[in-house]
Write a protein that binds this DNA or RNA. Structure first.
Lengths: 191, 191
DNA sequence: CAGTCGATGTTGACACCGTCCACTCACGCG
DNA sequence: CGCGTGAGTGGACGGTGTCAACATCGACTG
């Protein structure tokens, strides 16, 4: 903002992340190009390389910012609560392409440590579920249920009338799974 | 059919699909290129256009073939059974990149009708669940659970010791969800 | 059996992309 | 005031998807 001497952009890094995210939502992952982002930021096609060593690094930064926003969205809710799950699903429905980028392959968390940190922080509210006493496998089930709904929504695999009410879906599915968890706790080892 | 005079390949279409699938498993979706597939099939970089109007069309054919194989894998099991679910998850674990291509975005089922047909046929064994009396939302829950586990496995998001036993995960998660469905049927409207 | 024709492959071209390189510009430090 | 360094520029290279024009083979026709 303040420093804009026409030659030096002033805040290119943030501008590129914003441009890349806009491209991501508009044209999907394959539609995000370094050159297009640079164009949108009003700089030459090579300027991004001063801030990101590769296209993948820019995408990792976009994903990390996404995790931060996801964490913020869940932050107002009780960790592990139904509200947190609803916020999670709402985020996925509102930013499908970003959600896919965050949880998809292609962005190795080993190659981008900042990504691992951001993801870990964002997932904490969900990990509270397994801390609440459920077995590890059962807790994975909750995450899988949530993630499965999120991905089905993000990829448009659900019938339209169902996709229109993501919160209701989450409510029913989580209530069902929760009832199953309680039943298993009451009568363990039943088959 | 059996015409292979060195100029005419004879079965280029199938060869390209096979090559693309090999590339997909080896280098991921972005690593699949028409030119590379053509190279692998021993033809010029433009020959694929005689069989597929675009790269996306080739990918759609690969995905359709994948659906056919998934259907075959589930075919030996009772529709809607636990075994069918295990076969589903086993397929996803065995061919992660292919599974992502099949269910990911970027392959519009409107643009590729054959894909829609193949997917519909493959999903029939799973739809048997909702036909078995569960509500639509609850049935979506089963698919979401399964799909969520599949995607988490395919994208390597699960801890290694959990990812090593996909069938056990499916068993626990599905048993839990099933118990919840039975509980909900016994005491509808509980909160 | 000669001639033609459509399906199949080839060669060449274009625009776009990610990335490497050498260069330039603006600013701050001595 | 000179100069070094980080930020941005311009050009180049190889790779890609795609279009257009051309070549070739096999089958059908007379």
């Amino acid at each position: 903002m303040s420093t804009s001497t026409a030659y030096h952009h002033g805040n290119l890094r943030a501008a590129l992340i914003a441009a890349a995210e806009a491209l991501l939502e508009k044209a999907g992952l394959e539609g995000v190009s370094l050159r297009e982002a640079a164009r949108a930021a009003g700089v030459s096609h090579n300027a991004p390389y001063r801030h990101f060593p590769s296209r993948e690094a820019l995408l990792a930064a976009v994903a990390a910012a996404g995790f931060a926003r996801l964490a913020a969205a869940m932050d107002t809710a009780e960790p592990g609560s139904r509200a947190a799950c609803r916020a999670y699903l709402g985020f996925a429905a509102a930013h499908p392409a970003l959600y896919r980028l965050m949880f998809g392959p292609g962005l190795s968390k080993d190659a981008h440590p900042e990504l691992r940190a951001a993801a870990g922080a964002a997932m904490r509210p969900l990990r509270a579920i397994s801390a609440a006493g459920a077995s590890r496998e059962a807790a994975v089930g909750v995450w899988a249920l949530l993630h499965g709904l999120a991905v089905l929504l993000a990829d448009g695999q659900l019938a339209d009338d169902l996709a229109a009410r993501p919160e209701e879906l989450a409510e029913v599915a989580l209530a069902t799974y929760g009832a199953g968890l309680r039943a298993a706790a009451a009568a363990p080892g039943s088959g």
